[in-house]
Design a protein around this nucleic acid. Structure first.
Lengths: 214, 214
DNA sequence: GTATGTGAAACCGTTCACAGCA
DNA sequence: TGCTGTGAACGGTTTCACATAC
């Protein structure tokens, strides 16, 4: 078997396919062709087939893909066939939104710990979780088996939080703070960046307007 | 002047450059070379120079870039040299986080209206803003001059919210709901997608682990 | 000497087009 | 016939390398 580097955009699309396959499954659709799925996902049929080809052959020639089967296979590829344990740093409004609102999340993810730097937030209970101080990160990450850290704290604290998470053994971080975290190379970081998206929109709106004015 | 299509990844990077130039400015740094800036931004010096070349010549040969000047120019390119008026749909925890916590945002963006579908949230005041029902979108978007809509409402309501915003004249939307919005082609949509980022991390962690096991 | 700006080359991802199979 | 899987062609982005200017 050859070593093939998989572009990260492929992974992004797989997640999109999974999301839309779930919707098809709920609608009771059994089989879907790459053309139909591409239409739904806003991409190209060849792209879907190429993306899947990185991982194997999941379709039936002349027929298409069985929705449930493909969903299962993509889940396996992405690693969604297990429960992932999340630790939250920062229990402000954003943190609370993440903790409470499961509709912003897929199944398979559970918050098992939460931390904050503000003394008045310590010991507050949210569901099953008790908010702990940042100093408890090392102990609780190990105790609760946190695998992914979610940073939703003020930017000034974000790097410290990341350092503590990594020190405790966390290898994956979703960062909501608008700064670039510096971590060891074995740590995977994904940024969720509202102000970046706003900047992109500004540019598009600005250039669309200046084009109109001509 | 030639028409050159600018890749959207260039815009993304410009925003990153701006963010880091701001930090350099605060530190009192006057001049920065593309090598140094690339180092900070985690990219390649040639890439920075190529990105900027789409828009003009902003450096001094043998010297580098004047931080303040370059920051100003990038701001002008992105359209950050004006105030942008935002309208929020969905005043749950996430919406409140966006409204209140300015550290998730750059300067230059101001929320001027907020909407929610839950009757108990209507008429609540947050700062200068009074929460209005979705039905008021059309009127208030026009009255307050909303230019960008921010959707932080439950997925089931998201498409309706988008439709109403677009109907009222909004051409840019930042969407936090984990669904793909369908809008007219003149509308720019940027998605902020937590569960997508989680899926990417899962994949990376899973494949890193399976690589270790070998 | 030093760092930008930019053609040219290398690289990578997307799309095409068709062989192969149900 | 219909749709997948895939080599080949294409198009676009990144990187290199050097002429140019301070």
């Amino acid at each position: 078997m050859k070593f093939v580097k998989i572009p990260s955009i492929v992974i992004t699309r797989l997640s999109t396919y999974a999301r839309n396959l779930k919707i098809l499954e709920q609608k009771g659709v059994d089989v879907v062709s790459s053309v139909r799925l591409a239409d739904i996902c806003g991409t190209n049929p060849a792209q879907i087939r190429k993306d899947l080809a990185y991982f194997g052959q999941f379709g039936v020639k002349g027929v298409g893909y069985y929705v449930k089967e493909l969903l299962f296979e993509i889940g396996k590829i992405l690693g969604l066939d297990k429960e992932w344990r999340l630790g939250l740093v920062g229990v402000g409004n954003l943190g609370l939104a993440l903790l409470r609102h499961t509709h912003f999340m897929n199944h398979g993810y559970t918050f098992v710990a939460a931390f904050d730097e503000k003394p008045e937030r310590i010991d507050i209970r949210i569901g099953d979780i008790e908010v702990a101080p940042l100093e408890a990160i090392n102990r609780l990450v190990k105790e609760k088996g946190v695998e992914i850290g979610v940073i939703a704290i003020k930017p000034v604290w974000a790097q410290k939080a990341a350092d503590m998470l990594v020190m405790a053994g966390v290898c994956g971080i979703v960062n909501f703070a608008p700064i670039q975290l510096q971590c060891a190379t074995h740590v995977f970081i994904e940024n969720v960046d509202f102000s970046l998206k706003l900047d992109i929109l500004c540019y598009r709106l600005t250039s669309a307007r200046s084009r109109q004015r001509r």
